[in-house]
């Protein structure tokens, strides 16, 4: 519980501050753009659908690559750490979904006041699942690279396949290659695929990291 509290409190607070700063920046940029041309898209949607997921991926990498060795060095087992960070990934994804949604509400108010048009954005569930899977895939790939060195490259295609699944239900995030129509046919049922992607990434992280050696840091 100590690990969960520490990691969640510090990283969720940090992520929220980063998101608030980015939101303020995006609003300023939107006003600057409006001076030259009409606003027709949601700038916050670009951030939440394109940029935020990479941040969540970084958070997953950071947790395994940076914090796992520290936890073991402070006498915690890998199992304790992985239990705590599995819970952390869910809380961080929830928190970021809430922040994203508050951003859409605030942006919607500004757009209405300024009589601008915003394009469509995804549902909170779609954002939550996208953030969750990207964070967990970050953990999975970091564990693979930390354990197998260059051999971790083999985790990338699987990670890529898992994260692509989650972007399908987010407008502006692109479509799946080859099976473009299947997500539309499945509708909300497609979210089950995102849940499966999360479970696969989490299982992969556990399988690799639960007895991973803690190597000497050389720098």
């Amino acid at each position: 519980m100590k690990i969960f509290r520490q990691v969640t409190a510090s990283l969720v607070a940090f992520s929220t501050i980063v998101a608030a700063c980015v939101f303020a920046f995006v609003v300023v940029v939107t006003f600057v753009v409006s001076a030259f041309r009409g606003v027709e898209i949601s700038a916050w949607n670009i951030v939440t659908s394109q940029i935020a997921r990479w941040y969540l991926l970084w958070a997953g990498v950071y947790v395994i690559h940076n914090l796992l060795p520290i936890a073991v060095a402070h006498g915690r087992t890998r199992r304790e750490f992985l239990v705590a960070t599995s819970g952390f990934s869910v809380v961080l994804a929830l928190a970021m979904t809430l922040v994203a949604w508050l951003g859409f509400l605030a942006e919607g108010g500004i757009y209405t006041l300024m009589d601008w048009r915003a394009d469509e954005h995804g549902t909170p569930l779609a954002y939550f699942l996208m953030f969750l899977v990207w964070c967990t895939v970050g953990m999975f790939c970091a564990a693979a690279f930390d354990r197998f060195g260059a051999g971790g490259i083999f985790s990338v295609p699987l990670g890529l396949a898992l994260v692509i699944v989650t972007t399908v239900r987010i407008p502006g995030s692109g479509n799946l290659p080859f099976i473009r129509n299947i997500p539309s046919l499945l509708g909300s049922g497609w979210h089950v695929m995102s849940v499966a992607a999360f479970l696969i990434a989490l299982a992969g992280t556990w399988a690799i990291a639960r007895d991973m050696p803690i190597r000497l840091r050389t720098s």
Binding site: P69, I70, V72, A73, H74, G75, R76, L216, S219
Partner: peptide, 15 residues
């Protein structure tokens, strides 16, 4: 594990 602390050449317990 709770009862052990190892400090190698550079501190593992610090990023």
């Amino acid at each position: 594990m709770r009862n052990v602390c190892l400090v190698r050449h550079t501190p593992d317990a610090a990023d």
